[in-house]
């Protein structure tokens, strides 16, 4: 029976993605390395500050793994949460695992400790890019209820490769933020179909931001992550400049689009395709025939 990634906890996801019984957690709950800020604010803390980090094997190869717990404060990044991730990446630079696998589920910076969270995000990005420059591989998995927004969205896009399910969402500003800043006419955050159309996994895959698209199934995420262990990864000034050029071109082409299906059709999705109802295999097969998809 399939085990849904969407509704699993961070720990359940980690255990399901890596090889059975191979996970060794650093700073486990009983270490009680949790946020000092939450206590000061009289708010219940989480023993692990909402992130699980550790070492494991994936298809027999050593990896370091982190998983954000989207149910705790929306997976938001606070000081300790961020430090655990930075520490894991630093460790990767020393240990040289086959990859660092990050299971994102986070709305961005934790408002309760905003400055510390913002600093943490920049530290994580710097650590990721530094490690990539040394040839380390980062694989992000996005399929949790909290999505991947704000600073966490930035971190995700600094990875080598992303795996997404339809339920996963990836964007810079979250739907509520856009509505607050630009008004409901610009973006109705309660229109869930709209939210998923423009931030969900299918859209991100068609745009080429997600490298693999899978069913909401922990086993499928695991298989995709294993596959990505061996795909070519490149990180250089040229690759970054190429990406910037690609984004600039995309902005030129789609900047005035008002909804995702407009973009899909321009990318070559047939007008009569029922994209929403396609399962992962059907969708990936269809996307393979989209001439415009930036794979």
């Amino acid at each position: 029976m399939r085990k849904r990634f969407f509704e699993a906890s961070a720990r359940e996801r980690v255990h399901g993605v890596v090889d059975t019984d191979s996970f060794h957690e650093f700073l486990p709950p009983e270490a009680r390395v949790s946020s000092p800020h939450m206590v000061m604010l009289e708010q219940p803390a989480a023993f692990d500050d909402g992130i699980v980090v550790g070492a494991a094997t994936l298809d027999g190869r050593p990896v370091l793994v982190a998983a954000q717990e989207g149910a705790f404060l929306g997976g938001a990044i606070g000081e300790v949460h961020g430090a655990k991730l930075v520490g894991l990446i630093e460790r990767a630079r020393a240990e040289r695992p086959a990859a660092v696998v990050i299971l994102f589920d986070s709305g961005g910076v934790r408002l309760h400790e905003a400055n510390a969270g913002l600093i943490a995000v920049s530290e994580i990005i710097r650590a990721v890019l530094g490690a990539r420059a040394e040839g380390l591989r980062f694989i992000g998995l996005i399929g949790g209820a909290g999505g991947c927004f704000g600073g966490t969205g930035l971190i995700a896009r600094c990875c080598d490769a992303l795996v997404m399910s339809e339920e996963g969402r990836l964007a810079m500003s979250g739907p509520e933020v856009i509505e607050t800043v630009r008004g409901v006419e610009e973006f109705d955050s309660r229109d869930r179909a709209l939210v998923w159309r423009v931030t969900g996994g299918k859209h991100r895959y068609l745009l080429g931001e997600a490298d693999a698209f899978v069913e909401d199934d922990i086993e499928a995420f695991r298989a995709a992550a294993i596959h990505l262990l061996d795909t070519p990864a490149e990180f250089s000034l040229e690759s970054v400049e190429r990406e910037h050029a690609r984004l600039a071109e995309r902005w030129q082409r789609f900047g005035s689009s008002t909804d995702a299906p407009e973009i899909w059709q321009a990318l070559g999705v047939p007008a009569d395709a029922d994209v929403a109802m396609m399962n992962a295999d059907e969708f990936v097969a269809m996307a393979a025939h989209c001439p415009g998809r930036n794979a």
Partner: peptide
């Protein structure tokens, strides 16, 4: 595929 839920109940 016959049930067509209102937008607010979708996450697709």
């Amino acid at each position: 595929g016959l049930y067509n839920p209102p937008s607010r109940f979708r996450n697709w």
